[in-house]
């Protein structure tokens, strides 16, 4: 058993080392690809570190851009949770609401968040508001969807028990349906987070003055592929950190309810 674990860890390290080695080989050593197409790992690392304090070439440090992106993404995301989760619960709980809202929701659901960008710019102008609205549009769908399925899947038997014991409908919702649905709701919130993060990158690529998407966009036309890759890495790392924080919260909430 232990031997297997060691081999596994060895393979994992090998794969990363191999990846970086091949990258290095293709760029710095053999110069198979020019730096404008793919800068060497050394250059990317160098630019990454430099970008923490260097405003060039895009007018902001990595931290500033990251904070700008986070601010907008989280604003839209929180609104999506505040509105989406109760709406999903309400839709699933109330049959009449379900019948009326569900078709409408099905109609709007397949439209990707990015498609709303031009319309949101027209309505809210180019600023935090329109981008937050785009994030909201992308993040609200999984929030609604998962809360809805969560409530719908709460076991009939539990409901009967609650009713037999004379619970009111509100009590049933609050003490039976929502706790049962909580894992589902949390999944929705987690999916929504990655949707939100995708949406902000798209919105920033299309019109902004700050943010990681903007940083990438500025570097495009001016042959700074290294900064593009730095931006991608930063986006990825932020995504990971956000989901770690969220799963920590999820752990607390879901466990606490049990």
């Amino acid at each position: 058993m232990d031997k297997r674990k060691i081999i596994s860890a060895g393979l994992a390290i090998l794969s990363i080392v191999l990846f970086i080695f091949i990258w290095y080989l293709c760029t710095d050593v053999l110069e198979l690809v020019p730096a404008r197409t793919l800068p060497s790992p050394e250059k990317v690392l160098d630019s990454f570190i430099k970008k923490f304090h260097d405003k060039n070439p895009d007018g902001g440090t990595l931290i500033e851009h990251t904070l700008a992106s986070l601010q907008v993404a989280l604003t839209g995301y929180l609104w999506a949770i505040i509105i989406g989760v109760p709406l999903g619960i309400f839709m699933a709980w109330n049959r009449n609401v379900d019948k009326f809202v569900r078709p409408l929701f099905d109609l709007l659901k397949p439209i990707p968040g990015v498609a709303w960008i031009p319309l949101m710019i027209v309505i809210f102008g180019i600023g935090i508001k329109s981008k937050a609205a785009v994030v909201f549009c992308s993040a609200v769908v999984p929030c609604i969807l998962n809360s809805y399925t969560g409530i719908k899947q709460s076991k009939e038997v539990h409901m009967w028990v609650a009713r037999t014991f004379g619970a009111t409908r509100l009590q049933m919702l609050w003490t039976v349906a929502i706790p049962t649905a909580l894992p589902h709701i949390m999944t929705g919130i987690r999916v929504a987070l990655s949707s939100a993060w995708v949406a902000i990158v798209a919105a920033e690529l299309l019109g902004s003055t700050k943010g990681l998407g903007f940083m990438i966009q500025q570097s495009r036309g001016i042959y700074r592929t290294d900064i593009i890759i730095v931006g991608m890495l930063a986006i990825g790392i932020c995504g990971i950190i956000l989901s770690i924080i969220l799963s920590f919260i999820e752990h607390l909430v879901v466990k606490g309810r049990k």
Binding site: G59, G60, T209, Q218, G221
Partner: peptide, 28 residues
């Protein structure tokens, strides 16, 4: 971004002792 648009905007800012980082260019 990355065109003469940016060049003229930044040159203008520089006239007043500012740099390109003191103005925001909204890329469109």
């Amino acid at each position: 971004l990355g065109t003469t648009d940016q060049f003229e905007a930044v040159c203008w800012a520089q006239c007043f002792g500012l740099t390109g980082n003191d103005i925001s260019i909204l890329n469109m």
